[in-house]
Design a protein around this nucleic acid. Structure first.
Lengths: 209, 209, 209, 209
DNA sequence: GATGAATGAGCATTCATTCAT
DNA sequence: TATGAATGAATGCTCATTCAT
């Protein structure tokens, strides 16, 4: 299902090559031949580590989901306040997305495949699972923050949805508007706007900036 | 580039058929043959109205951009307050997205193609243009609302970015979590959370809900 | 399942080309590309008439079964005695096999595929059906001949099995021993030997020659 | 050309594994990997004993030819009458074929390969040699039997051809009609019918049964 | 000797596009 | 104008064979 023969590094090598090729050409246009070449391997070798093209992008999806999970766990473990955790989570998440660049398109395409593939078997897909997990953990964080008075009163599930939507949406805009995005510092601004809407105002002025 | 022969209604027919086929199968897996069949036409006829497969999904992109533009123009023309306009824009936009269902995947795929097609020729693509337009008009709306005291003080460009991000992100979550989304009313909650963060509080209680 | 587009002649053209290619190279080594080339068509065209390589050799099997059926029907309809019918059937059948030459190998290979493909779904395959039909009709012919006193007393089903076995076996030997077979006139001899064992001796001498 | 390294028992092990795999999947679909696995060896090891896939099925062919030769030699050496020898030969031969089951398909496939491989280089192939040998020895047996008055007058070469044809043909029918064959006892019947046509009638009744 | 990772030639099949009718 | 038969480039995948360990 994943790496079959011994060398796990080679499985990684292929995965990286695949991510690069898929990022440039797209999942459908990126060929196994290109991936193999990019990885400096023979076509057949790719099939020693992954049973099919679909297996490869499934592995990419898993890998991305793990990256997100890691970010979340790491952040949650930090000895900082809830609001700081939230800020870190959002800013790091967005930074990660921006860093991924066109690779994020691959994730979108994989989603499309996955979503269409699911049809009736509702559930599954590492990404879907990760989404649900992320949402429930965000809710927990928000509730905790509310209890501590760090966050204003709110409906945590709706706000969690909003935060995730924001983070995903930012990546889309980044892809669409690239230059505009870097010229103006819309990302930082929008993150601050989002946070300001959530955090209890220490002073009584400026609610949202 | 678009409709070549006389009957413009046939061009529309093909476009609808294409959207349906692409929604079900995806852009790459959906074939011209299927589109033709769905439209009740011959394969050759499709090529009388569109010069290539890429032309077809370009037309879909244009069509979607126009739909969005129409929503924006219509809303802006209404004799209502700025905050009401914003609320209407967001709720209608999200409703439209939800209504589109899997067709939204097609839009994502078209984006991917478009984005990768652009690479260095920065600019163009109806969707990119629409994005920029939407952003600047949102900024105008926000500024106007701030001037009128309907909105709190804020950095309009950042908030506009956030709003658009939110709307896009909501569609992704809807696609990923379908059932969850309908069971809980996360969408309404999240829209309210977003708006509450922007609108000047009439009373002094509940900042964000 | 069989010819899809209009021209039935082209389906035949492809079938002949396929039979030739398969005869020379075998079913597995004979490629669609070669068949197309042999037929003077493009590779894609072959797929307009047959949905898969397996479809092609299924069609060959059907065609061969029909040829056999035709031989049987034609012979049975002739206004001749039972023993003459049997003789004609055997000699024509063997002649047909010899005429087919290496094409008979293709039939063997198709059988192999079919047999292995069947596994549990006992029954079907045009050839299997034809076998059963041929056997039961031979039994009828033999019984009729016995009743008329043309054939000796015998167990018709066992003899029918023997006759069919003989005819099949002859084709194998022909393929194995080609030259030997033509030099000596073993075929004629063996047919006579078989018939002599079945026909009522008019005089009391020489039972089998 | 055959076993290269020391352990001859491993060569046999591989041969058995190959026969099993080829029986189930066919020569083309059965892979070296499967054979190796079936034999409990590494893929590379197979190549230490056989230089190629073709070498393996050549060895199977040789092995089968030897089995047949052994049956013939054993039977001929028995202190029994010519007609008993013939009966034993046929019944044992058929029994062997039936016992072989699907493995007989492998032999057919190997023939196909061999025959096509021969083309113009008339001669060779263990099976062809065996065929010729079997034919000439059958002729000798028949002549001897005729001389002794055990068999009727006949043309021995034609009858030998017929006998061999019968035996091969039976195996084909067995493969095609499996169930039918076991339900009815066509095999026994057909063997008796064949023999009755050859043996001098001791009494004057029932010529052929 | 034994092994299995690496390899690339080879093949069935798909599909956008063309063009004769 | 409308059509769909014809086409071949393109691609995922298999597997016999090699060879370093």
């Amino acid at each position: 299902m994943t790496p079959l023969p011994k060398h796990p590094e080679k499985a990684q090598l292929i995965l990286h090559a695949a991510l690069k090729v898929f990022s440039e050409k797209g999942i459908e246009k990126g060929t196994i031949a290109e991936i193999a070449k990019e990885a400096g391997l023979g076509k057949g070798t790719v099939y020693q580590y992954y049973n099919s093209k679909a297996d490869i992008y499934f592995a990419i999806e898993v890998s991305k989901a793990e990256t997100w999970d890691l970010l979340f766990q790491t952040t949650m473990a930090k000895p900082i306040s809830c609001s700081q955790k939230l800020e870190l989570l959002i800013s790091e998440g967005v930074a990660q997305t921006i860093h991924a660049g066109d690779a994020i398109l691959v994730i979108f395409e994989i989603w499309s495949h996955t979503i269409r593939g699911l049809v009736d078997e509702n559930s599954f897909s590492p990404m879907t699972i990760m989404y649900e997990k992320f949402h429930s953990e965000l809710v927990a964080l928000l509730e905790q923050g509310i209890a501590k008075g760090e966050f204003r009163e709110m409906q945590p599930s709706g706000v969690a949805t909003m935060i995730i939507a924001f983070m995903d949406g930012i990546s889309i805009q980044m892809l669409m508007l690239k230059d505009q995005f870097e010229k103006n510092n819309w990302v930082e601004q929008s993150i601050q706007s989002l946070l300001n809407g959530l955090i209890s105002k220490p002073s009584k002025d400026k609610e949202i900036q």
